[in-house]
């Protein structure tokens, strides 16, 4: 069954073709206030990561993922597993659905190896990298910006490191997660990225929000 699935490298020509991140337009149109000394919140986009949706049975997927990537599926609902260097993560989305995020240049190889390992198992793997983007929020007031924006309890004591939920953010939905003490990650549909970005700038104004441009994950 898996033989009939066509897997192709959507980034094969990244060396020759310049790509623009989902927020490229927003940066130009809405501006990028630089993080000031007084600023208590910083936004940055981590574009061009590889996003993979895994669906199927937890046991078979967990086994394949441990073999291929070295990290397992999170065992509990609303939780997140991050690998040792913080570059790769798996998040629980629903009882049979997980979101895997890896550096952009690894996604094709990973999907190929996962498919090879899973063989004919009853699973679905979908590359959604082009459909969503990751916005990172940091700074001491990051959770205060979130409190203004989401119905979920984002008190740092309640929303502990390693937690991740799908919830409402302003008038759209977002996958919100906390990979470590300092950072919050928002995964949004790329068509809603501009809305979320402008909302964050507006909500974060009182905390002196700034935008840091991150280049380490962008293609050459």
């Amino acid at each position: 069954m898996s033989n009939s699935v066509h897997v192709y490298d959507a980034r094969a020509d990244h060396a020759t073709v310049t790509a623009e991140s989902p927020l490229a337009y927003s940066f130009q149109r809405s501006g990028m206030p630089a993080p000031g000394e007084e600023g208590r919140a910083v936004v940055s986009e981590r574009a061009f990561l590889g996003h993979l949706i895994l669906r199927g049975g937890a046991i078979v997927l967990d086994e394949a993922l441990r073999e291929v990537l070295g990290i397992g599926l999170p065992g509990r609902p609303n939780s997140l597993t991050v690998d040792a260097d913080g570059q790769r993560s798996v998040q629980w989305l629903s009882p049979d659905e997980w979101l895997l995020i890896v550096p952009g240049d690894e996604i094709f190889g990973l999907e190929t190896r996962l498919r090879a390992h899973l063989g004919g198992s009853h699973v679905a793997i979908v590359d959604v990298s082009a459909g969503q983007t990751l916005i990172e929020l940091s700074g001491e007031a990051a959770h205060e910006v979130l409190m203004k924006s989401t119905v979920y309890d984002v008190d740092p004591h309640a929303f502990t490191v390693g937690k991740g939920v799908t919830t409402l953010f302003a008038k759209t939905n977002v996958i919100l997660r906390r990979p470590d003490e300092a950072r919050w990650e928002l995964i949004v549909r790329r068509s809603f990225a501009d809305y979320v970005y402008r909302w964050l700038l507006d909500a974060g104004e009182e905390y002196g929000i700034g935008v840091a441009r991150e280049s380490r994950h962008e293609p050459q």
């Binding site: 509990r76 609902p77 609303n78 979920y152 939920v165 919830t167 409402l168």
Partner: peptide, 11 residues
């Protein structure tokens, strides 16, 4: 019962 926690009614 799947998320195993209390969530806001709007969801």
């Amino acid at each position: 019962p799947y998320c195993e926690e209390l969530r806001e009614e709007e969801e």
